[in-house]
Write a protein that binds this DNA or RNA. Sequence first.
DNA 1: TTAGGCTGCACAATCGGTTGTGCAAAGTGT
DNA 2: ACACTTTGCACAACCGATTGTGCAGCCTAA
Lengths: 337, 337
Amino acid sequence: MASESPKRPTIYDLARLANASPSTVSAVLNGSWQRRRISQKLADRILSLAQAEGYSANMQARALRRERSGIIGMILPLYDNRYFSSIAQHFEAQARQRGLFAIVACTNRDPEQEREAARMMLAYRVECLVSTGATDPDTISEMCDESGAASINLDLPGHKAPSVISDNREGARSLTDAILDRLAEQPVSGDDILFIGGRAEDHNTRERIAGFTQARTQRGLATSEVDIIPCDYAADKAQAALEAYMRHRPRLPSAMFVNSTISLEGIVRWLQLGGYQLDDMVVGCFDWDPLAAAFHPHLMMVRQSVEVMIARVFEMIDAPVVEKNRCIEVAPEIIGV
Amino acid sequence: MASESPKRPTIYDLARLANASPSTVSAVLNGSWQRRRISQKLADRILSLAQAEGYSANMQARALRRERSGIIGMILPLYDNRYFSSIAQHFEAQARQRGLFAIVACTNRDPEQEREAARMMLAYRVECLVSTGATDPDTISEMCDESGAASINLDLPGHKAPSVISDNREGARSLTDAILDRLAEQPVSGDDILFIGGRAEDHNTRERIAGFTQARTQRGLATSEVDIIPCDYAADKAQAALEAYMRHRPRLPSAMFVNSTISLEGIVRWLQLGGYQLDDMVVGCFDWDPLAAAFHPHLMMVRQSVEVMIARVFEMIDAPVVEKNRCIEVAPEIIGV
DNA sequence: TTAGGCTGCACAATCGGTTGTGCAAAGTGT
DNA sequence: ACACTTTGCACAACCGATTGTGCAGCCTAA
């Protein structure tokens, strides 16, 4: 679909039409004309001309000359999830509010795709790159450093750039507490909880397991290794892992700590196949989905404070200087208790 | 967070280091060197130098000179929904495959925000702008035309640019048929269906209402105006609309045709508040959410073929010329029957 | 009346690539 | 040995803005 370039007007075109110099036109159009002592009359003439001709500045040229692109980038594991898509949405809104242009790329939790996306963004000279849930955030921070771009980690922490993450340990502790409370309310019940989903090697899952274990320990409950299954986030993997787990168990666990709504999808599918209901167990999920909340008001979910996290990210961007190892933890909220 | 610009190397730096001219370096680095008869030896030298120095081309400069940005844009009502986020994800993947850089902006179904986003994207000289679910697609197409950028409508059709949409009428007809079949299977049941959600003024909702009515007519069923409530998509509005509707009704409708998962959220919340279950009715939803599907395998949902639609969009982009009024309808799929 | 200051604008360099063109040097044929 | 082609690269204009600097013309004051 080749487009028939009708050539947008440039400052040179306007200069000719207004009988002025390109530099004057430029000054008028970018607002620096007062400082350059352009007369109000000429400024008005140029402005109305620009309006009439439908002028809009070529950002590539501006970026080149100013050595500032006005672009801010974000990499994301995926869009197709309420948590991450909400992050993207808030990020974009905040960027726009600051006159920055946001570009977002999703990289499927794949380190190579993450690097490739970062390369592209740096080639477009992003001023700052936010790595969300990156599997390899430090390499990305290094790439940014070499290019003179700022970088910030979101959701998963790194060592070579400041980070904003949820308070995973405390969130998991609270969720586990809530699960145990709910179990205690029930007439007949055990206190065994299956922890399922996530990646053993990622910081968040480790912290959540720590919080989970800690909450149990505080109540004098032991936690067995076999009841902790970080089988990755994907729904299919969670479903398969639960299938395997249940082959050696006589009955459902009393409760489950599901490490993301993506994993929850697999868990629920397995339950359906076995003729079980979600309500046959006490379930807590470290992640939030509004549709799931509507369907199951008693399903306990940890809702991470996306708005606050994004706000913290932009505070860092605005700050004159931030220590590389700064890590801000944002308290999540528990829904459905 | 000011970043300490360590000045990335340019072709001029490399030229000095390689004892060659900038134009030669440029040719080597952008792959046109064979055509320019640069010797393999020199090319190798420059390439390894570029590697060593961590060179990457400044896309702003390239875009400026080539008068092609390599950027392709998309505007979206919102990210935070499985349908639209999936569109964004596929769009980005396809764009990347073609060496294009995708930028996506969400505009909250607000015509002013849509125009503003389009202005920004055109300022960055996007080569093509895809308007997804735009409330005012024609104005955007005009803006693109004036700027010499291609434009395509997705999800909602327009008149001034080619469109790719779901076959809403046929999808709604099939869904309504499925609902009626399901009702017929039940021992005691009515044949009244409440259509709820969407906007009366948008093309998709109108088509879906048409398909809905047509399916009923084909079975000899009349359809009353009062059973069609296009109360907008938002969950809260759907909830409020259902609340109002039910004030004058003695009992739940036998079935519901819910016009999006966003509206479904409100419907389910209302049901929960009234102590009802989703399974107390036959429900069909014109939209798909995998988590909802996991929870309610019998919930019938229309899954629009995002992959196919995006593929069609890129076929249009690749085509040498496409008629402005071309409108491709893609058949959706019915899940849960 | 003239030096000095202010007003209002134009000039030209620059950002980092791309690309049409020119031109030596080397190679080929006779 | 001479004309001709090919090889291999450099030169310079250009894309569209931004910005430091220069300089007429007018105003003001001594």
